[in-house]
Write a protein that binds this DNA or RNA. Structure first.
Lengths: 354, 354
DNA sequence: GTTAGCACTCTTTAAGCCAGACTGCTAAAT
DNA sequence: ATTTAGCAGTCTGGCTTAAAGAGTGCTAAC
C-alpha cells in the first residue's frame, strides 16, 4: 500500500528531525517546525497510523516517535534529500586517487580512509579475493647475496612484498633466465591457477629452477592467503564518539564487538549483490547478521571494469544517509573518471605510434 | 627516605590487589588475604602513613586505599614480581619475526601487533625517522610502458612502493644505465642527503637523466615525508573494553582522544631517552603531556644496532606492568637473537668462501 | 476531516533514608 | 613503644517517594 503524500511528508520530517538531534520527535515539534498548516492533533493521528504500519515506534507511551528500520528504508529510497558535495570536496576526493598507480588494495584502503574522513563515521573497506587476479608480468630483483624480490603484476595489483630467500648467490644470468621461465609459466594465469600448478607439468627446462619455482608458488600462496585473511580495513573507529548514541556504554561495546569480529563483518559485506552500486542494510535485515541498531551503507568499487572490493560506512541506524550516500557516489564517480582518463591516454598513445 | 620493609610489603600488596580487581583495597582485605600476622588496625596506621607520603590515595574518607602514580613507580622499579612468559609465548614471538626480511617498518608494526595481542592492551608503535637511513642499493624495474618501480635498499629498510611515471617507453638500456648512475650518486648517502642533492652538482653524464633523477628525488622526499607523517601505528584500540576502567564513558572518550591526537602521542614517544631500554611513564609526569590517569610503557627497538623506533602499551594507570614489561623484554631479546643469528650466518658464508 | 481540550501514562530529577563498608582515634594490652 | 580491640564517624549506593514535565490518545465539537 502506497502512503498518502501527507504521511510521507510527515514521515520525512520525523526522520530528518530524528537524524538531526536523536530525540524522539513529538507531534508538536513537527507542527511548529515544519507543518504549521495542520494542528498537532491531526499529526498525532497520522503518527498513530504510521506506527500501526510499522514505520515508527515509541520508546514509551508518553514519548515522541522514533523511526524504525522500515522508515529508514523508505527514506533512503525516495524521501531523502540529495544534496551534492561541494566542489572542494569533490576535488579533494579526486586528488586522493589521481596520480597513483591503480592497485585494488590501495583503492579500497584509500576509499575507506576518505569515507571516514568525509563522513565522520567509522568506515569499512572490504578487499575482494585476489585469487582471480590475472598475472601479467613477473619480475625478479636481486636485493643482496641471499635475497630476491619477487614482483608480480596482475591486472589490478602489483605484488611487491614477497622476498625469496636463497641459499646461494644468484647471478644475473640465473635471475633473468628464471624470470623468463616464470613469465612463460604464469603469463595470463589467474593467481588461483598459479598456486595450484603441479610441478610435474613443468617441462625439462623449468626443472632446473624447481626450487625457485616452488618458493615462488609458496609466496604466491601466502600472498593470496594473507589477503584473504586481512581483507577488511577499518578506518576511524574512534569517530563513533562523535555521535550521541555512543554515550551509552553498552551500545558502544556492542558496536565495537561487531567491528572486532572481522569474520562477521566480512560476511556481511561479502554477501552483497555485485551488481548493486550502493547497498543499504538497516537493522537486522533478512539474512544479514548485522546487529539490531546498526546500519551499513556500502558501495562496490571497480578497477579496469573488475569488482575489486567495497567500502562504506558502518554506524548507528540513525545516520546521515544523505551525506554518506553522496560521499560513496562521489568516490565511485571519481574512480570511473580516472579509469576513463587512463584508457583514453592509452588510446592516444597508440594513435601517436601509428 | 627509604620505606621500611613492612611498608613496602603493604604497598606491594595494595598495588597487586588493586591491579587485580580495580577496587580500593581495605585494611581488612590486606590482613585477611596477605598479612595475617598483623591486625587490621596496625595496617591501617601504616596505610595512613603511606598516604601521608604520597603513595596512596582515597576516593573518599570511608573507602579503601588506591595506589597513586608514586606507588606505581616504586612498584615497577623494585616491588613488582617478575614472572617470565611461557616457552610457548616466547616461541610464538620468535615465529613472528624469524623468516622475515628485516625492515624497520615491519618490525615496529609487528611488535605493536604482538604486544596488543599478548597483553590485551592497546599498543602503539612509533617509527623513527627514516631520514638517517643509509642508501645501499638502488634498483629500477620496468613495470609497463609508462611505469618504473623504484626500489631503494637502505641499511634498515627497503623502499618498494614508489612508482615513477614516465612519458616515454624506457628501454632496457636506459633503465640499466639510469640504475647505475643512481647508484653512483646515491650510494652510502643518507636519505636526508639524497633528497637535498643539488642537481647542479651532477656531472655531465647524469645530465641526460636529469628528469628521471628529479623524479627519484621527489619520490624519496615523499617517502621520507609520508613516513614522518604516518610514524604511529595503533593496534588493538578496542582492547580497552577488556578493562573495567573503560566502563566509564568519560574515561573512555578521554583515552580515545589521546589516541586520536597522533601528534601528542608521537611527541610523548619521541622524547624518550634513546639509551633506555624500557621507559615507564605513569600519569602526568614532569614534561610529558600524557593525561592524568594513563600510563605508557614502551621499549626502543634496534635493527643492525640502529634504533629504528619504539613500541609499547598505552593504557590505564592500573595495568599489569609485570606482564607488559615481560612482553616488551621478550620481544627485544628475540630481535637481538635474530640479529645475531643473521650476523653469524653472514660470517659463516664468508668463511665458506675463503 | 480537523481541532481543542483534557485525562492519563511514563520519564526524570530530587530528596530522604537506611544499610554497609572503612577509616581514624582512643584506651587498653603486650 | 608497638600493637590491638572497639567504637564513633563518614561516605557510598540502593531504594522509595514525590513532584514536575512531556506527550499521547480519546472525545466531543467544529
Amino acid at each position: 500500500m502506497e502512503l498518502s503524500d501527507r504521511k510521507k511528508k510527515i514521515l520525512k520530517v520525523v526522520v530528518d528531525d530524528y537524524i538531526e538531534d536523536g530525540q524522539p520527535v513529538s507531534s508538536k515539534t513537527i507542527q511548529e517546525r515544519h507543518l504549521s498548516e495542520f494542528s498537532s492533533a491531526t499529526i498525532r493521528s497520522e503518527l498513530a497510523q504510521l506506527e500501526e504500519l510499522g514505520y515508527l515506534g515509541q520508546p514509551h507511551t508518553s514519548a515522541g516517535r522514533v523511526p524504525l528500520a522500515k522508515a529508514y528504508k523508505l527514506y533512503t529510497n525516495e524521501l531523502m534529500p540529495r544534496e551534492d558535495l561541494t566542489e572542494e570536496e569533490i576535488d579533494y576526493i579526486y586528488s586522493k586517487f589521481s596520480d597513483h598507480f591503480p592497485e585494488s588494495e590501495f583503492l579500497v584502503k584509500s576509499a575507506a580512509k576518505l569515507i571516514s574522513e568525509l563522513t565522520d563515521y567509522t568506515a569499512v573497506g572490504f578487499l575482494g579475493s585476489v585469487s582471480n587476479d590475472v598475472i601479467k608480468n613477473v619480475k625478479l630483483v636481486k636485493l643482496n647475496e641471499r635475497s630476491i624480490l619477487l614482483i608480480v603484476m596482475t591486472d589490478v595489483n602489483i605484488i611487491k612484498d614477497s622476498i625469496i630467500a636463497t641459499d646461494f648467490d644468484a647471478d644475473d644470468n640465473y635471475i633473468s633466465a628464471a624470470e623468463q621461465i616464470l613469465n612463460e609459466v604464469f603469463d595470463e594465469k589467474k593467481l588461483s591457477e598459479a598456486t595450484d600448478l603441479d610441478e610435474s607439468l613443468l617441462n625439462d627446462r623449468i626443472k632446473n629452477y624447481k626450487l625457485l619455482f616452488e618458493k615462488v608458488v609458496k609466496l604466491l600462496k601466502e600472498y593470496v592467503k594473507s589477503k584473504a585473511e586481512q581483507n577488511l580495513v577499518l578506518e576511524g573507529s574512534t569517530n563513533i564518539f562523535k555521535h550521541t548514541e555512543f554515550n551509552d556504554i553498552d551500545t558502544t561495546k556492542n558496536f565495537l564487538s561487531v567491528l572486532d569480529s572481522k569474520e562477521k563483518l566480512g560476511s556481511i559485506l561479502k554477501t552483497e549483490d555485485n551488481n548493486l552500486e550502493i547497498t543499504v542494510k538497516i537493522g537486522r535485515e533478512d539474512d544479514s547478521s548485522l546487529a539490531d541498531d546498526f546500519a551499513l551503507v556500502s558501495a562496490n568499487y571497480k578497477l579496469n571494469g573488475v569488482n575489486v572490493g567495497s567500502a562504506g560506512v558502518i554506524g548507528p541506524m540513525r545516520m546521515d544517509y544523505n551525506r554518506v550516500i553522496q560521499v560513496l557516489n562521489s568516490i565511485g564517480r571519481t574512480l570511473n573518471e580516472i579509469g576513463r582518463e587512463m584508457t583514453e591516454k592509452k588510446v592516444n598513445d597508440k594513435d601517436e605510434r601509428e
